[in-house]
């Protein structure tokens, strides 16, 4: 027998969530200013040079990084991102597909921006050898925090990445012939080294809820309160269109602000609150990644 709350959730999800949000709570027991806990595991794929699995709420993502040797172009290496999902296109809801698309766009823009790894640092021998990193993102399940989980997993996998040392055997080749990678003699040693990360960007998702004060006088009732809800679940995200996605790095560096579609308009001051919340979140996630790295080193 379903409880009245469950029935309300099915019949009128808007009212169901409103009754929680007005008390600054979410149905899963969190405060609206709280994120769901993030679980991060590094080195989950032993065959990959770097990998990470992140679970945040119902969202689960595995990222693996595989380096390959290539010739640099314009003095930089490459990062190729492939996103694969186990989502069945027919039974995934529109909002899930939209989330997946947003996640892909977010990853690409972070890579293009050199927000995590400076692609120039992937060059080993100038104009001859550079690393190409093939990043495979596998989305195992989709929930509200998909973008957040994926970005954390990507940063985790790149932090976990250990590149083998590589060098050219003889530098004394005549310079007249153009350099060909397939004919070059490469020396690859077992000594692995970590990649220097530029920053630890962390993505945070928010939705907004405009509520009128129920227990105030008539004047107060007119002044609506804008509430920022951190890390909404899938159902809440689908219900309240107009989510805001913010990617923040160290020292308040903002990499991406993306908001649009439906819901209430957002004022500049609300946005400022959101960025501050995201900056706080960045510190805690960076701590988690560093902890995981230390555990992996032991």
């Amino acid at each position: 027998m379903a409880s009245p709350a469950d029935l309300l959730r099915v019949c009128d999800p808007g009212e169901y969530y409103r009754s929680f949000l007005e008390r600054d709570l979410l149905p899963d027991g969190r405060a609206t200013s709280e994120f769901r806990p993030l679980s991060l595991q590094l080195g989950v794929i032993s065959s990959a040079y770097g990998s990470a699995m992140v679970r945040q709420g119902g969202a689960c993502v595995v990222v693996s990084v595989q380096p390959e040797v290539s010739v640099p172009i314009d003095g930089s290496g490459f990062i190729v991102v492939n996103v694969d999902s186990s989502l069945d296109a027919t039974d995934a809801s529109l909002s899930m597909q939209a989330q997946l698309e947003d996640t892909v766009a977010c990853l690409h823009s972070l890579i293009d921006d050199d927000a995590i790894v400076n692609r120039k640092s992937l060059v080993v021998v100038a104009e001859k050898i550079a690393w190409t990193l093939y990043v495979e993102v596998l989305v195992l399940s989709v929930d509200g925090g998909l973008t957040d989980a994926t970005v954390s997993a990507l940063v985790g996998a790149l932090a976990d990445l250990r590149l083998p040392s590589i060098s050219l055997k003889d530098e004394a080749t005549d310079d007249d012939r153009p350099f060909e990678l397939s004919k070059a003699a490469l020396v690859i040693s077992d000594a692995r080294h970590r990649l220097e990360l530029v920053d630890y960007p962390v993505s945070s998702t928010f939705v907004f809820h405009k509520a009128t004060c129920a227990d105030g006088d008539a004047k107060k009732r007119k002044r609506a309160v804008m509430r920022c809800i951190c890390d909404p679940s899938e159902q809440l995200l689908a219900l309240m269109t107009g989510a805001c996605n913010v990617v923040v790095g160290r020292q308040g560096q903002v990499y991406r602000v993306n908001r649009g579609g439906g819901g209430e308009g957002v004022s500049i001051s609300t946005l400022d609150t959101v960025v501050s919340l995201a900056a706080k979140r960045q510190q805690s996630v960076e701590l988690v990644i560093e902890q995981a790295l230390r555990m992996r080193a032991d």
Partner: peptide, 9 residues
């Protein structure tokens, strides 16, 4: 003042 529909950085 709260009328930002799209914000893309």
């Amino acid at each position: 003042d709260d009328d930002l529909l799209l914000l893309e950085l």
